[in-house]
Structures are given as C-alpha cells and as structure tokens.
Design a protein around this nucleic acid. Structure first.
Lengths: 234, 234
DNA sequence: GAGCGCCAACTTCCATGCAAGATGATATTG
DNA sequence: CAATATCATCTTGCATGGAAGTTGGCGCTC
C-alpha cells in the first residue's frame, strides 16, 4: 500500500506548517473583528502574539492579501481591509454570477443526483423556517449560510467553490452585522424553495433566474441599510 | 500637492520589489510554456536563473499557487500545474458566470456609458471580422481576447476583473493551442454582435443569455478537440 | 510662533544559515 | 537475485541579521 500512503501525503495528510497556522489564526482574528478593519499591525507584533518568527507571518500575509482580506503596505505594515458599501455591491454581483451558474449546473445534472441535492437543500431550508418561527436568528443565519454554500459546492466546480469561499470570507463581517438588522426572514425561505423547485424539475434557466432574484432582493434590502450606517467600517 | 504624491506612492508609484519581479518573470515563463506543465523546479534553481536569493522566489511561488498556476510540494519543489479537459470545463463555467453577469451589468448602465462601451466592443469585433477575412489567426485571437477582457473590465467590478484575469491566465496555454485548431471563426463575430446589440438596447437578460450562449458554443466546440488530444498536457 | 531639516526609531525586504523531511543509490541480508 | 535497510544528497521551513525605506518628533532658524 505504498501508493496509497504516498497519495495521502501528497493530498491532505501533511500536518499544517507554521505558515498554515498563521494563516488560519490571522483569518480567524479578522473574521471575528479581533483585528478590526483599518487596524495596522506589524509582522513582528503578530509573530510575537502567535509565538513564531516573522517569516511565516509574512508568508501568511501574502496569502491573506491575495484573498483580499489585508493589504501589505511596503515597509509600513499590514492593514486590515475595510469594506465600503461599494465593495459589498461588488461582492453581491460576484455571488449572483457564481450562485446563478451553480444553480443552473445543478439543474442540468442527472435526476438521481438532483434528487439528493434537492433533499439536502430542502432540509436546510426547513431548518431556516423552523429557526424563523422560533425567532432564533443565529440558527437561521447558520442554515442560510449552509444553503448557499451547499448550492455552490454540490455544483462540483472546484474553481467556483474556491471563488465562493474567498468572497464569502470577505463578506463575513458585513454578514454578521446585517444579520441582526434584517426583518423579513420569511422571504428567503420562499425564494429558496423556488430555487429548489427549479432544480428539481431540471429547469436550468429558471434555477439561475431564481437564484439571481433571491440575491438581488437581498442586496437591494441590505445595501441601503449599510449605506445608512458608517461608510468605511465593516 | 503632498496628498497627490502620497496617494501615488500608496497606489502605484512604488517600483517593483524583487518579489514582484520574480512573480512576473515566473508567470511569463509559465504562460509561454518555457516552464512546461508538469515541470518540477527547485526554488534555488529559479533563484539562480533570476539572479536573486530563494526568499523572493518562494514568496512569488506562494502567489502563483494562489493563482492556481503552480503547486508547492513541501520539501520537494514547485510543480507547474497541468490542465486536464476537466479543468477547462471548470474554467469555461466560471467564465460563463462572470461574462454573463458582466454583460448584464453593462446593459443596465446609463445610455451614454453604454454607447461608449458598445462602440469600443464593436470596433474590436470589426477587427476580428477583418482578421478573419485576412486569415490572420494571431490578429483574430488578439482582438477576441480584447473583446472578452473589455466586456468584463467595462462592467467596472474590480473583483470580477480580478477573477477574470486569474482564470484567463490559467487558460492561456490552452487558448494558444486551440486557437490553431479551430475553424469557424465567423460564428464568434456574429455572436459578439448579438451581445453588443443586447447591451445597446439595454436588455440585460438578453445580454447575459447571448454571452452565455457564445461561451457555451465555444466550449462545446473546443472541449472535444482537447479531449481527443493528450489528456494531461496543457 | 511657524516652517524646515535632521535624526532616531520602527518597519519591511532580502540573503543566508541551520534543521529536518524526502529521495534515490548503494550496501546488506535472506 | 530479490528485498530491505542505510545513508548521502537535495529540497524546503523557518529564524535571524543587515540594509534600506518611512515616520514622527525634536531642535534650529527666521
């Protein structure tokens, strides 16, 4: 079984390096706003905090910059990117493009595969409806997030999954904020069901259109809220 | 004008670092297949070739890995990613998603803005038609590339532009190959004109649909060609 | 007091050294 | 001869130091 062990090592078996640790830790701190947007930190400071030298922190910062989460200012430091409403508009358009296409792809798959996906998505939507009735905002948000992630992941396009992950990470802080602000949790449930139904009957154009409308509606609902708040924060 | 100088420095004025040099050089070598797909190089070797130490090469490799152009095998080296037909299928779906949305966004802009974009796109399409009649494949390919890049760039979404750039870089080698294989250069011109017309009259749904059909047709035409060739090369 | 220049402190950039993992050739054993 | 163990070599991971760019404050000049 030498081959199997070799492939495992090659694919996922390797234990995380310090760079991976630093990347995960910094990403988490940014997601949870422990590093607030606009904050400027030195690599030395972060390295000290994580108990490692500057090198892995620097290399993790490069990856985070590639993800759009921080900006490295040469010889000045690492600054956490803030999101303006204009950024959220960009992000929504990317999500609309990706999720719309993912929904269409799902609608085009074989029937047995579709049925599995449909039941998974339906379960998540049911969880949302339940959370809405119980007025459990956290549970609602979690189920909603899972629905959208599943929609893209089950489409099976690795590059789309990666783009979706990156853009979702960028929007995470804004999502945490808007989750508390929004009313009308019911509309999402109904819209999700329409997306599911289009996938179930294998209508790709309708699936894309429903996914598109769902996100457009959410965008038009949330962007004004963000704009009425502080501009350059979150 | 202190402010202006400060912003220039912050934005673009900075002369490239060695890391930037290494990134650009390696990317170029990959694009032009001087580093062929599957080739495994050591950082030391590349550093020697570029006349710098391992550090900037290593950091550039991290960025290239993030771009999906290379894979860093821990303690083994840098390997240039090869593209299988399955990868090209993924890439096409991302392009369909992004360009479709970009076309829709363009169709939704104000009339004066639309007219400027339309005339720009029309000029590029005219150049394609001219190149087709002259049987100048290189010119045709260049104009086609410009058309698609312009379509996305003029939509004005920075994140979409970045995604498009990344995915286009990945597909560059495959594009160079397929360019020589394809017949039917005429279909693209007609399809481009339909996209342009939909944008001109401000019909977002039609613009998206035309962009979608154009790329789908190209995909269905080129993927079989790739599959009939060597699988894991380019 | 206002403006200017200088300098010290802080930052990253990059080169390099050391340690440790990966690999393939060679020696050893059955 | 086949199979395995060993080791020399090659590779990167990470730490660290020196060089150079950036910044903010202090003192000097007017």
């Amino acid at each position: 079984m030498v081959r199997v062990r070799a492939e495992q090592q090659e694919e996922a078996d390797r234990r995380p390096s310090l760079v991976d640790d630093a990347y995960a830790a910094m990403k988490e701190e940014i997601r949870e706003s422990r590093f607030p947007p606009g904050y400027q930190a030195s690599e030395q400071e972060i390295a000290l905090r994580l108990g490692m030298s500057r090198t892995p922190v620097h290399e993790a910062a490069i990856r985070l910059q590639e993800d759009g989460l921080v900006r490295i200012l040469p010889r000045k430091g690492i600054v956490i990117c803030a999101l303006a409403p204009a950024d959220m508009r960009e992000i929504y358009d990317v999500v609309i493009a990706i999720e719309g296409r993912a929904a269409a792809l799902l609608a085009e798959t074989a029937k047995t595969e579709r049925e599995a996906v449909v039941s998974e998505l339906a379960a998540l939507t049911a969880a949302m409806a339940k959370a809405r009735d119980a007025e459990d905002l956290a549970a609602w948000g979690h189920a909603d997030e899972c629905f959208h992630r599943t929609l893209v992941e089950r489409a099976g396009n690795g590059r789309m999954i990666r783009i979706n992950q990156t853009i979702t990470d960028q929007a995470h802080r804004a999502r945490m904020l808007t989750l508390k602000l929004r009313r009308e949790l019911g509309a999402s449930v109904a819209e999700h069901q329409q997306i599911i139904e289009a996938i179930r009957i294998g209508n790709a154009a309708a699936a894309q259109e429903q996914a598109y409308r769902h996100r457009s509606r959410a965008r038009d609902e949330l962007l004004p809220l963000l704009e009425s708040f502080g501009l350059r924060h979150l």
